[in-house]
Design a protein around this nucleic acid. Sequence first.
DNA 1: CTTGACATTGACGCCGGTGTCAAGGGTTAG
DNA 2: CTAACCCTTGACACCGGCGTCAATGTCAAG
Lengths: 165, 165
Amino acid sequence: MRIGELAARAGVSTRTLRYYEQQGLLPAGRASNGYREYEESDVRLVVEIRSLLANGFTLADARPFVDCLRAGHEDGASCPESVAVYQRKLAEIDADIRTLIRRRADLADQLVRACPGCVLSKEKTDDHPDGRELRLHRAPRRQAGTGRVLGGLVPALQDDRADPR
Amino acid sequence: MRIGELAARAGVSTRTLRYYEQQGLLPAGRASNGYREYEESDVRLVVEIRSLLANGFTLADARPFVDCLRAGHEDGASCPESVAVYQRKLAEIDADIRTLIRRRADLADQLVRACPGCVLSKEKTDDHPDGRELRLHRAPRRQAGTGRVLGGLVPALQDDRADPR
DNA sequence: CTTGACATTGACGCCGGTGTCAAGGGTTAG
DNA sequence: CTAACCCTTGACACCGGCGTCAATGTCAAG
């Protein structure tokens, strides 16, 4: 099938498919006239990628899953590389959550200081008794070394200008 | 004082100060030779901005605080506009936290499904206390801006790109 | 005078994931 | 033959917060 059909069936734009190919995620065959040729299985691949992206993965993160599927596995997550990415993502999310919670507490404190009584919002400021959905299981170790941590969910607090990239 | 001194005293680059001026956050007077002239009080302003940025605010978010300080208040948060920003930020953080928590649960589920037993690493990772220098990067692209609040269910806060900007 | 530290404006780069346009070639139905 | 679509590559735009050049101006010290 050609790019337009794949785009329609996978629910993405042709631009997106070409971008994925450029990133090495979705190599396409070529017809004699230069048109890209895709397999049926590529639909599945694209859907997998979109699903991962929607869950906060980057394209680079998605690569092991795609490779795994192309290697013949039914589940993109059934390869050790994919599992490693999963674990790394979990660690990143945990770190982000803890950061946000800390930040929330700080902000709430400052708000109370500036405007006592203004805190009419949630009960997330303190450890709430029922421990509802905020229980952060175990904390992973951080690994923020190389700069990039998550695929973009949380405002940056990059004030430690220690490392110039 | 001139830009170099302010930069040194506030702990930012001159580029940063010029950027803030360009954004209308930090208007500077001019000497006869064209050099920017700053007041003592501007040190305070810049420090305030940096503090807010470090807490996940954008420059636009910081504006009410700066205005408040310049209006003579000792605390940048003691104006109603600032309080409103605080509350909005709290709401955003709460939404982000909920999203992340949901996402974490989903990922953990999938990991267990793909690799039962792989999750036990979660328990043994005992985090060491504290932890500055955690650098998350890049704010969510739309979420804060155009009135879209991610309070839904695993909203994937960036795949509803149906609206053309 | 020269040097050198400091100042100016302007512009590109980065990061991710596309949207969108431009300028062209291929294919097919009428 | 032509219209009407499909496809191709290439390149700019966007968002935030700057880093980092480039080319040039200012001013005090030696």
